[in-house]
Computed example of a mutant assay.
Amino acid sequence: MIPYLDLQSQYRSIRPEVEKAVLDVLASGQYVLGAPVEDFEKRFARYCGVRHCVAVNTGTSALHLALLAAGIGPGDEVITVPMTFMATVAAIVYTGAKPVLVDIDPRSWTMDPAKVEAAITPRTKAILPVHLHGQMADMAPLLDIARTHGLTLIEDACQAHGARYRGQTAGSLGDAGCFSFYPGKNLGAAGEGGALVTDRDDIAEQARLLRDWGQTVRYRHDVMAFNYRMDAIQGAVLGVKLSHLDGWTEARRAVAAQYDEHLAEGGMALPARIEGRRHVYHVYAVCVPERDRVRGLLNEAGVSTGIHYPIPIHLQPACADLGYGPGDFPVTERFARETLSLPIFPEMTGEQIADAAKALRSAVATLAG
């Protein structure tokens, strides 16, 4: 069986480093925030090309704090997309603001800038594009729109560690960028983790305050806040893995290039290679008719797959009160019906890639009849 993801192989490749880092934390007796987290924050800020990194317990918390620190609250509207994980929209709702959705671009599968201005109202306070699958959204026109209308722009970069747009790293273009370090991410912790990055002193200061019970000094709580702190063990593990991220990214890009070659004549939509953008392939998704039947045939052939995401946000029962329905976002809905995520991880062999691609071509051909 070809696994969708192989975290065991990754662990074996860095086991001595990880175990030393974890044991050092255990020996220190300091298990929440502390030196390992501070060191990771400094290094990840440099990696992203910004001045501040605020490490937290999840990517969802990073999004929540970025919005709050930017002043988003009840009565406000935040524009985002329906093709994303629930956390993007949940973080908006947590602030008391209303998510306003716009469709995705059919080529990049990220926010369509041409749809944004029509969604702006006097209540709009922010734009929240999602860098889907490791592909950055088209940031230049989105930044222009944000500047023109005086809006905050926050990047959901939870799937885009190290992705680039015109030479700038994900998280560094907007007012803030938010990352998840869930174990399966390109930079994954040994559990939950997240961070927001920013060049804005005010956002960083407010986020640090809000993540740790609103304390400026111990037991003095200046605002009602949250327990969103990162564990020291996660900071230590992420510090080890950050040193390997660029190598893993190039390996992922090499896997994707081999998939592109094997599937070029397969009659399916592949991830777009767009000039000026560096895709980091957290997910390698293809679009195929009869996706669920194709997936079943791949499973029979010993190829594990995923779907990101089968039910778009506007059709989720939890989001019924947003007022959208079937047909409102046709590009997103077609993508949700047809997208299929193939196995991809840095340690994947050429034989595994070829076998997975062959099984996919065979499944598509069989169903095409």
Rank of each mutant, 00 (worst) to 15 (best):
A354D: 14
K358H: 11
A357S: 15
T332K: 05
L360D: 12
F345T: 01
G350R: 12
T332M: 01
A365K: 00
A365P: 00
R334W: 13
F335A: 02
P343T: 12
E351D: 14
I353Y: 07
E351L: 10
I353E: 10
F345L: 01
K358Q: 06
F345Q: 01
A363C: 12
A354E: 15
A354Y: 07
A365M: 00
A356Q: 06
S341M: 07
R337P: 08
R334P: 05
V364L: 10
K358P: 07
S341E: 11
P343Q: 11
L342I: 12
K358Y: 06
A365W: 00
V364N: 09
A363K: 09
V331F: 08
S362C: 03
L360N: 14
P330A: 03
R361F: 05
E338A: 05
A365I: 00
E351A: 15
F345H: 03
P343G: 12
R337D: 09
A357N: 13
L342E: 14
R361P: 09
I353H: 09
K358M: 04
S362L: 03
L360W: 15
I353W: 06
S362F: 01
T332C: 06
S362M: 02
M348F: 02
E338Q: 14
A336L: 01
Q352G: 07
M348W: 03
E347S: 05
L360P: 15
I353L: 07
A357W: 14
M348D: 01
I353M: 10
P346I: 02
T332P: 04
S362D: 08
A363I: 14
R334F: 05
A354P: 07
T349F: 02
R337C: 11
F345S: 02
L342M: 15
E338T: 14
F335T: 03
S341Y: 06
A363W: 12
E338V: 02
A357R: 14
R361D: 04
I344A: 04
V331R: 04
R334L: 13
P330F: 03
A354G: 15
E347N: 00
L340Q: 08
T349N: 02
K358E: 09
K358G: 06
E338Y: 05
E347A: 04
V364M: 12
E333S: 05
A354N: 05
E338M: 09
A363P: 11
L342A: 15
T349W: 02
Q352C: 07
T339N: 11
I344S: 03
T332V: 03
A357M: 15
R334I: 09
L342F: 14
A354I: 05
G350Q: 14
S341C: 14
